[in-house]
Write a protein that binds this DNA or RNA. Sequence first.
DNA 1: GATCGTTTGTGCTAAATTGCACACACAGGC
DNA 2: GCCTGTGTGTGCAATTTAGCACAAACGATC
Lengths: 211, 211
Amino acid sequence: MPIDIPDVVIDRLPLYYRLLERLEAEGRSVVSSQELGTELGVTPAQIRKDLSYFGRFGKQGRGYSVHRLADELRQILGLDTRWRVTVVGIGRLGRAIASYPGFEGQGFDIIALYDASPSLVGTEIEGRTVRDVSSLREDLEREPVDIGIVAVPGEVAQEVVDTLVNAGVQAILNYTPNRVQVRTDVELKHINPVLFLQSMTYHLKRQRDER
Amino acid sequence: MPIDIPDVVIDRLPLYYRLLERLEAEGRSVVSSQELGTELGVTPAQIRKDLSYFGRFGKQGRGYSVHRLADELRQILGLDTRWRVTVVGIGRLGRAIASYPGFEGQGFDIIALYDASPSLVGTEIEGRTVRDVSSLREDLEREPVDIGIVAVPGEVAQEVVDTLVNAGVQAILNYTPNRVQVRTDVELKHINPVLFLQSMTYHLKRQRDER
DNA sequence: GATCGTTTGTGCTAAATTGCACACACAGGC
DNA sequence: GCCTGTGTGTGCAATTTAGCACAAACGATC
């Protein structure tokens, strides 16, 4: 299997997968790239090409078996196993993340929560006890996790990320507004709603000024 | 001023702007594209080219005036005015959004909160009273907003978005896992952390299997 | 079993995006 | 005022990404 599959392609697969899950739930058995495309707002050709990196899952004249394709994507994306996640930073955002049912439902087990505040440590969130972030490092030695979600104040983001990465965490989802650096072999994604808003205002301003 | 500036460029500007703000706060007066690039993990040439779409802000041999460039970007991105925002859906996520200081600090005024649950309507969050979503439509007529942040359950996302758009809201930030459709002249961004995790597991699986 | 309407997989082309590399400009020292 | 070191702005080339368009395949129908 070729190693050089573009990242843009990988980033689209979860989108396809999510739609297929919905169609599966609706009881649809077959779907065409045309239909997937209109639903997602992308061209059918792009979907076919993206999928063709991984194999030939469709049947000419018919389309794709919804169940079969969903299954293949599960395999490809590694969603056929469960992944161990830890959340560091249990402020309002961290709590929202820890309580969000969408993670567990998709195979992501939030196995531990950490915070630095003594008033939070020891409290329970959705049946999980908040632990002291000072024991993060040693805890990870005993019970490693695959993914770290970081929702601490921006100033300590890099520090927390370093701790996670040094303890072997391979993927970081950074909810803080600060960009952090990691080794190139560690997966890293940033979620910063302000950046989204700021690129939207660019267009809003132009719409407002005229046209 | 040319209309056809690529969206990829626009999406990078807030990134540059955020770094410049930090440098401004640190008291730096001049910075080179080289330095901006290493800090952000992009090539200096890309930064220079991106900026050149909008004008010539640098000085050869010196670099960019931090204050001047930050100012220009504020202008370009429309961050020299305040923007009116409403949040619909005041569950755990909506509350985290409503309380996040990063929005107000960047010129985004959250002027109203809405929810459908009778137990929430009337309660106060950060000094704002949660209103009933059934009055959203008429409220928007009286006090319009520029941006709608949607944090309702996925099933009603499209419905809420339609209400917002029909009432003249020009930009939507959708926190629900459901993709929604809007007119092409409305700005729309999706924030779905699960999609991020799912593309990360693709790489995690490959790292694990070998290499 | 031939024909027809569909839809895939993909070679090839077009478009978008990135980045090299250099002329030109500026500041500082001599 | 000339030289030197540095860093911008940009023409151009390379690379990446998207998408057209068609042969091949499949199922249904007669």
